[in-house]
Design a protein around this nucleic acid. Sequence first.
RNA 1: GGCGCUAUCGUCUAGGGGUCAGGACAGAUGGUUCUCAGCCAUCAAACCGGGGUUCGAAUCCCCGUAGCGCUACCA
Length: 504
Amino acid sequence: MNDTLQKLARVRMAPSPTGFLHIGGARTALFNWLFAKQHNGTFILRIDDTDMARSTEESMREIYSGLKWLGLDWDEGGDKGGPYEPYVQSERISGGVYVPYVQQLLENGTAYHCYCTPEELAAIRAQARVEKRTRSYDGRCQHLTQKAKACFAAEGRKPTVRIKMPNTPIQVDDIILGIRNIDPGTLEDEVIVRSNGMPTYNLTSIIDDVEMQITHVIRGTEHLNTTPKQMAIANALGLKVPQFAHIPLVLDSSGRKMSKRHHGALVAVNRYREQGYLPEAMLNFVARLGWAYDDKQEIFSVEELIEKFDLGRVGKSGSVFDLKKLEWLNAHYITQLDVSARTDAVIPFWQAEGLVDTTALTAEHRAWLEKIVGAVGERLTTLQDIIPQTRYFFTDAFDYEAKAVKKWWGNSAEKQNKTVEILTSLSQILAGIPAFDLGTVESAIWKYTDENNIKRVAAMQALRIALTGTSFGPSLFDIVVLLGRDEVLKRITRAIVQLSGPAA
RNA sequence: GGCGCUAUCGUCUAGGGGUCAGGACAGAUGGUUCUCAGCCAUCAAACCGGGGUUCGAAUCCCCGUAGCGCUACCA
């Protein structure tokens, strides 16, 4: 690839709007986007919605929002326009874009009308299968006489248009897979226009790529087998094809291709956003699926990806989607946020749970929230984790976790009496200390445990359950101070009542 | 069934004729702390099989095998 070409690099992502943006789509988008960025090129978002029955507006919006969230902005495309608009294939169809190409193909004899019905075709396929033949459709309509055509037409049959495959090998030069020659004997005369007049993907895709001056088609390997077909169409039209790069599939844990149909929400990019994943983590994760820079680096900022990503280093085999690794990355990126930014990130989650009302957020309240986030520290794998980690700060309507109660409050009357004793003492101490700050609270509690020969863990865990209902969480001193004296005393009293009650 | 693609720890991968086959995630153990998370230390864990080529092959070649993808008037 020379300098001129590099400056002119034009790549595209061409999703069909039949569902949400999924992990594989996000990765395809990222690889294209990175390629465009590093070659000073143009990233185009084209909507391939030739399958009218399955395409929806809503899906289109989902894809836009997913890409925007990831920060993968496009220079030309669907909602944005550009020098080669429209970028939505259904609009191109109604604009008659493909008609002259089909006309040309028909006129130069590389395409022909086929009058076979779907039923006939199914029978042909079944027959080919029992005979173990490579191609099924045998080109039988290629040499139909005018009379035969008229006859079919009289029956009311509407023809499809098929492309005639060449009998010379087609060479596919793929950046990732290398050069390979496809035996034309394995290719069949594909339908390029349906009987209802709608063009099919193989036709529209390559024509749009050519018309939009796409230089590199970077797409999933599920399209590998369609490449020679598309090249045959371009060749028949005398068009120059772009360079191809087929990236390996994203697989599930049993090694199968991740798909909307079989994996649902697990592959939906927007669901990860809802669950509190950061776009940086998502991007970093997806970039490392099938690609590595060296044997050291795992963490890549977007800037570093632009600098270091190399399509030529992308592997050839599929990669299994590993949620644990995504979680690790996400926790890392959350930690990278300073407390203020982390608070901003977490507020929508509190709000969704009704724990924080952003319409009435005072500076004082905001400062308190930041302290909570600071106390939680590195305990967030996803932003959503803020809820179980902090719910008790906002409400005392929580249950005491049974397992924790059993372990730390005790399951015998004797142990429970001891717990009541400890909680009572702590309550008195906390009620009596002159100041309610970290240092004072800490030294008062340690003084009590050490002087009375009580295990620190025992006292602390008993108190933790009283205040939060759980046995895990931030430093208990942080919790005590952030809750405030009144609330702490109230919750201890409530715990004592619980422990002394008939049920306990 | 046909056609195609692929093959290093459980997972993501580095390496690529001579390496103790490296790292990361996950897992296990220990340490630190009031718990959890984290952090630190340690451990366990791989070149699909068989033939060649070669002094030497995980690496190159061939053949198998397995997995996956495609096989539509879906994209």
